[in-house]
Computed example of a mutant assay.
Amino acid sequence: MDVFNVIDCDGKKIRDKEVIDYIQQRLETDASFAPSLRSSVGVMPTEEHTSIEFTGTDRPGLFSEVCAVLADLHCNVVNAEIWTHNDRAAAVVHVTDHSTGYAIKDPKRLSTIKELLFNVLRGYDDFRKAKTSLSPPGIMNRERRLHQIMFDDRDYERVEKAVGRVEDKSSRPQVTVLNIEKDYTVITMRSKDRPKLLFDIVCTLTDMQYVVFHGMVNTGRTEAYQEFYIRHVDGLPISSEAERERVIQCLEAAIERRASEGLELELCTEDRVGLLSDITRIFRENSLSIKRAEISTIGGKVKDTFYVTDVTGNPVDPKIIDSIRRQIGHTKLQVKRSTILAPKPPKETTTGFFLGNFFKARTFQTFKLIRSYS
């Protein structure tokens, strides 16, 4: 039995019956859904859009160049999710044909789109091969797919930072992997709390072919503490130091990928052809770097969220933001918040957490997994 204590995005109890019914319906529907191929996870046929996936070396202006190519090819971006991590970039983009408003089906045109995007992503000195793929028209969980794409791209491998950029290791999540019982490996994680953190971790464990048997998650005002008892699908716990290090790296990456780095900007306006290309071009011309983005279009209106820094990864000059808002429109582009200078949570030893769960239970909202075989 799995027990979840959940709240909505505003931290309040969920009382909307439609939301509760929807959650129940999805859980009952997906309970027996166990796809055998990773590439088929969450994919269902539709005629609404064409899905484009890509990975490449991150650089300032990359997403702007991608949007410009799509606009030139008469593709309208209706939904997209873009993540960057460890100098790698990945995206799942849903596009439609400008003239029809539906998925693009012409094989020759699809081949041209793939080729031109590959040329943009390849850049000039990409030491890893860029990848683009055009999925059959379908509905997929973009976030689920992005975890798979970045995992396959090995973004969890640490790279040397550019000169002048110092990595703050104290802000990285703390992950420990211990074999304290012969039948299970115990994983403990401590990080800043955020929406969808548990989803990101479970996706990664699943992609790495591990099964969660027991677990507990405690969340406070700013932090999350997680503890899982896992085994590999072959029934064995983690058995080597190399495997242990790989699990730690992959879980750190899973936590960091969706971390909201930078200044959050929200664009709300009427949709039009080439809008995203124009917005990202303005960002690029003002030396902004997009660290993460969520693009959505509903009923002819766009609601896009961008997390931006300057090209060196530092906070953006407020004067530049004011200039950009004047170009786009103050009512259309809103400044939400900045996460670069957010206060760091107090330090705590892993041992203290591992042995202290029972003492924290009264001060944290608690979620428990009991005998979970998902």
Results as ranks from 00 to 15, higher is better:
Tyr373Gly: 14
Arg292Gly: 03
Val93Ala: 03
Thr46Ala: 06
Arg38Tyr: 09
Lys12Tyr: 12
Met150Pro: 00
Arg26Met: 15
Ile328Ala: 06
Cys9Thr: 11
Val120His: 04
Lys336His: 09
Tyr156Gly: 03
Ile295Ala: 02
Ser135Cys: 10
Ser170Thr: 15
Asp125Phe: 07
Gln174Leu: 15
Thr309Asp: 04
Cys9Gly: 13
Ile320Glu: 05
Glu167Asp: 15
Gly215Gln: 04
Asp322Val: 09
Val77Leu: 06
Thr96Pro: 08
Phe151Ser: 00
Lys344Asp: 09
Leu27Val: 13
Ala90Tyr: 00
Thr280Gly: 02
Glu294Ile: 03
Asn357Ser: 06
Ala224Asn: 01
Ala71Asn: 09
Lys12Thr: 13
Val78Asp: 05
Arg26Phe: 13
Tyr307Leu: 11
Ile104Ser: 00
Gln209Ser: 13
Phe358Arg: 11
Ser32Thr: 15
Gly235Lys: 05
Ala71Ile: 00
Ala91Trp: 01
Ile370Trp: 05
Ala224Asp: 01
Glu160Val: 06
Val77Asp: 02
Lys192Met: 13
Val166Trp: 09
Tyr229Gln: 04
Lys105Ile: 07
Ala80Gly: 07
Ile20Val: 13
Ala224Gln: 00
Gly352Leu: 11
Val217Arg: 00
Val335Gly: 03
Glu81Tyr: 03
Arg371Tyr: 11
Phe213Gly: 08
Arg244Phe: 01
Glu245Met: 12
Arg122Gly: 05
Leu263Val: 05
Ser111Tyr: 04
Cys67Ser: 06
Val66Ala: 04
Tyr22Met: 10
Arg190Tyr: 08
Val233Ala: 11
Asp10Glu: 14
Thr100Arg: 13
Val202His: 05
Arg88Ile: 08
Ser323Leu: 14
Arg257Ile: 12
Ser323Cys: 12
Phe54Cys: 10
Gly101Cys: 12
Val43Gln: 08
Asp155Met: 06
Gln226Tyr: 01
Gly220Ala: 11
Ser51Leu: 09
Gln226Pro: 00
His74Pro: 00
Ser111Cys: 09
Lys13Arg: 08
Val177Thr: 05
Asp8His: 08
Val43Leu: 10
Lys131Asp: 05
Asp168Ser: 09
Val93Trp: 00
Asp97Trp: 05
Ile282Gly: 03
Thr219Phe: 03
Ile149His: 01
Leu70Asn: 01
His147Pro: 03
Gly220Val: 04
Ile7His: 06
Ser323Lys: 14
Asp168Lys: 07
Val41Gly: 05
